[in-house]
Computed example of a mutant assay.
Amino acid sequence: MNTKAPLVLSLSEVTNTLKNLNLIPLIEEGFVSLSSNKAIVPPVGELLFENPRGESHIKYGYIINQPYYVIKVASGFYENPKIGLKSSQGLMLAFSQKTGVLKAILLDEGHLTDIRTAIASMITLKYLAPKHNIRIGIIGTGIQAELQLKYLHTVSNCKEIFVWGRTAEKVKAFKDIFKDSNYNITIAPSIPELAHNCNIIITTTPSTTPLLFSSQIKKGTHITAIGSDTSEKMELDTDIIKKADIVISDSIEQSKTRGEIYKARQNNCLSKDTLRELGNIIKDPTLGRQNDNQITVADLTGVAVQDIMIATAIINNYKI
């Protein structure tokens, strides 16, 4: 019996299909499946490179009673912009859960990983952001920092943005991207200045040393940390985790080997009483922020259920 050739989608076909999708409820469904023990997600496969600096992650798994299992390869090579390439690259493969037949190849060049990461950040803001006196600080100026502002309107009306980057040139370029937007973007001269002015902070860098420290965090602040997705990376001083009233992981199991929570575990700065999984907060929002005085931290290392949900949505909604 002849097997039908898999659907092969280019980056442009993927991005055109994305325009028609409401991703937040889809990714939320994936997190709920994970926290409800309805998803099979093995440990992350990982390759780390030194010269030039880069990394490649293999994330894979399936959600029970869904049509596909998905294997995603995503890389970040941080010198790429110097040679005219974006740092993120990758693809997704979708196979039938019933037969193992390859059904689709999404040649997204890492774009879907970037998007699903940004959506996960928006979900944390939806459930954990303080409701009053909101000013949002973004640490970093790369692809993920840009996507934070592009998707912010889906969960917040906040227009007051502070941004910090390592060089004046990168911060100015970031601000120029949004020159025609409704955002009022202030360039923060330092991270302490950003933290002083903002009660929502999003960190988006591949740093391996802390950028944000406990002494800089005021009451009522929410932090979403999305840059630290390996065992080596670290954007937050571990005392921030110790100081937080609520700590959220996209996957508690995965946080045992990577991310800010992993570093906090190593330094005995994590209390089990404060740690919760994002899918459980989506199911029961009372597990999240209860007032605007609490300090909350969301540590996102990126989970295969996000890839499964976004890949499935692209396949199901692609119009030939």
Rank of each mutant, 00 (worst) to 15 (best):
L11H: 05
S96F: 06
K59Q: 10
K319P: 04
I115W: 02
N20S: 15
G227H: 13
L152F: 10
K59C: 09
S249I: 02
I246T: 09
I314C: 00
Y183G: 04
V73A: 14
G61M: 04
L47D: 07
I143V: 15
A5C: 02
L102K: 04
Q216C: 07
I240M: 09
S75E: 07
K256A: 13
P67G: 00
H222D: 12
H153N: 13
D250F: 12
Q148R: 09
S33R: 07
C198H: 03
P67A: 06
T154R: 11
A74T: 14
A39D: 03
L102F: 00
Y60Q: 11
S33A: 15
F49K: 04
N199G: 11
L85M: 12
K59P: 11
G45D: 13
S33I: 02
K175L: 00
S228E: 03
D307I: 11
T286G: 00
I63D: 00
D237H: 10
G45F: 05
T208A: 02
S207W: 00
T221K: 11
K256W: 12
I185G: 05
I314W: 05
I119Q: 10
I202P: 07
R135A: 15
R276C: 01
E55N: 04
N20L: 13
P6D: 04
N182A: 15
D176G: 08
R116M: 08
P6M: 05
G110W: 03
I282G: 10
L112C: 07
T186C: 12
I191A: 09
I136E: 02
K256I: 01
G76W: 00
S121W: 06
E146P: 00
Q294H: 10
R276M: 12
K19Y: 13
K179F: 12
E46Y: 08
I187E: 14
I24C: 01
K233M: 09
L11G: 00
T301F: 09
K150L: 15
S10F: 06
T208Q: 11
I71M: 14
I134R: 13
P42W: 07
V163M: 04
N199D: 08
V297W: 07
D299K: 00
G100L: 14
K4M: 06
L47H: 09
V305H: 01
F162G: 13
I240W: 03
T238R: 02
I139S: 03
S121R: 05
F49Q: 10
F178E: 01
E253R: 01
I226P: 01
L85C: 04
N37V: 02
I187D: 12
Q144G: 03
A74F: 06
E13V: 08
K272T: 14
A168H: 10
G61L: 08
T257P: 01
I24T: 10
I63M: 12
T124H: 13
G45A: 10
E277H: 10
S12D: 14
A304E: 08
E253H: 03
S156P: 06
K131A: 15
D299G: 02
N182S: 15
T312Y: 04
S228M: 06
C269E: 05
I226S: 08
S214V: 02
R265D: 01
K218G: 11
V41T: 11
P25Q: 08
P285D: 09
S36I: 04
